[in-house]
Amino acid sequence: MTVMVELTDVRKLYNGGSPQAAVDGVSLTMQQGEFIAVMGPSGSGKSTLLNLIAGLDRPSEGRVLVDAVDVGSLSETELARFRRARIGFIFQFFNLLNNLTVLENILIPAQLAAVSPTVALDRATALMNGLGLAEKQRLLPGRLSGGERQRVAIARALINQPLLLLADEPTGALDSHAGEQVMERLTELNRRGQTILLVTHDAKLAAACAGRVITLSDGRVADDSRLKASPEVAPSDILRLRPGEAAP
């Protein structure tokens, strides 16, 4: 099993010189194929942690290794190249480019990486088919529902076949039905081998999808639990209806 992400005593101070740390001494290791959910209340540092792993921010102390590369040592340009080759990103508010079609949105990372247009188109088509977006490929994001937009974002994140998929509150802006669909996609992706790191405050999302839930509090790891998936669990093991008191 290869180590995908390794954080060693990582600290990140708040921008603006406050002595408080957003991430205060976090060490963790993520294996290839894992699905980790990072939970915690507002201000616990989970988004900052995600940004550090993605190379969108540099640690104040400590080392962040992604695919054995020290992310903190790369220049902006190198980071951009690193990101587009190895990391896929899904945001809470989709962050699609509103004046490009669905297909164009999906193709962007590939075009930026100068992937051959035919190869890029093939990958995009496969992704759209898999995500049920094929008929909508010429529409603008404004015409799509929230769930559809997030699916476009997923396709965009996957077009360069990233080693690591990062998701920041992916269901935060969706209704429960669309959110569940996203959950299912992510689970499916992980089942096929995609390494996923998910940041969320939604406990159900975290528990349902991830095999490992890390809880942050005040920038530190407060808990790191492994969850088992047991498809054979009987309902009565986990759910009992309580009979009411006898009627008067």
Binding site: K204, A206, A207, L227, P231, V233, D237, I238
Partner: peptide
């Protein structure tokens, strides 16, 4: 958490 996982399934 584990309960949630099981219930979700």
């Amino acid at each position: 958490l584990q309960r949630l996982k099981d219930l979700a399934g």
